[in-house]
Amino acid sequence: MIQIVRIILGFVLWSGFFLLIYGAQATGCAIGIDPARLRLVLIAALGLGVVAGVWPIVLARRHASPLSNSALLASYAALGATVLVFSGVLWMKLC
């Protein structure tokens, strides 16, 4: 079972960070947090997401199993998706 979880682990993290970053941005804008501070929070979350996204890759590399190949590819895809999808927090208008 754990091997099946490893296939989706990267994207489960991605989903978590999606909710976190989107939620933080929407809530921050609604509450009216100072934009510079909000951007800092969002960038920190993005950084955390990238660091966390490396973990499934390490796991998939370390534990060889019939599914580890797919798990590795999916983990790379999830990390790539994290970097790309949230890249707007670095440069776009916040609210």
Binding site: F11, A77, K93
Partner: peptide
Amino acid sequence: VAAIVTMGFLSFGLWVHHMYTTGIPHLS
């Protein structure tokens, strides 16, 4: 297999593309 998993998850991160014109902030 990896592509199917990727597609399955990414598809949950698209829903607002039906709502681009509702006035949601451009960053979102």
